Amino acid sequence: MTKIEPIDGETPLDFVQRADSLKIPEGMINRILTDHFGYADDGEIKELKLQSKPFWDQFYREHVEGIFQRGGTRYAALRFIQRKNDHADEHRRLSEVEIERIVDSAGEWPR
């Protein structure tokens, strides 16, 4: 298991994004947010985590891969992310290029 510690001057959001990109278990992230950054409320921690770009990248990739594995279409995968993206705040809004890359990362879509 990878061990992670906050870096001097690192903000809670920077820490969460770094931890998410390293795929650190949620419990470990929560413990560090509580012990080091003083977060006491689960709602605060969840709100912070929802601002993490690596979290959303993984969320979209998992859903797109699920669509791909079920024999869905590339269009369905694109629309799924675009609909979610339309309601995203500025922290997690993706460009069309980012959306295309995520969808194409699932594999060769049937024509």
Rank of each mutant, 00 (worst) to 15 (best):
D104T: 10
R93Q: 14
Y75Q: 14
V64E: 02
R79W: 13
T73D: 07
K23D: 12
Q82I: 11
E90F: 10
E62R: 10
D104N: 15
E62M: 13
D57T: 13
R101N: 15
M1T: 11
I32R: 02
M28L: 14
N30C: 07
K3F: 12
D14E: 15
P6R: 01
V103A: 04
D41Q: 04
A88I: 06
R61I: 14
F37T: 02
V103P: 02
G43W: 06
E96D: 13
I102V: 05
R79G: 05
N85Y: 11
V103T: 04
A40L: 13
T34L: 05
D35S: 13
W109I: 07
A106G: 11
A19R: 00
L94K: 06
A106I: 08
D104K: 13
G38H: 11
I67V: 15
E10R: 04
R70I: 06
D86W: 09
K3M: 10
E100I: 05
D89N: 15
G43Q: 09
E90N: 10
K23E: 14
E65T: 14
L78C: 08
G38V: 08
L33S: 01
S105T: 09
M1D: 09
T2D: 12
A76C: 06
K3C: 06
G38I: 08
S52E: 04
D104P: 03
A19M: 03
P12S: 04
K3Y: 12
I102G: 01
K23I: 09
P110C: 07
Y75T: 14
I24N: 01
L22I: 08
R101G: 10
R61C: 06
V64D: 00
Q69L: 13
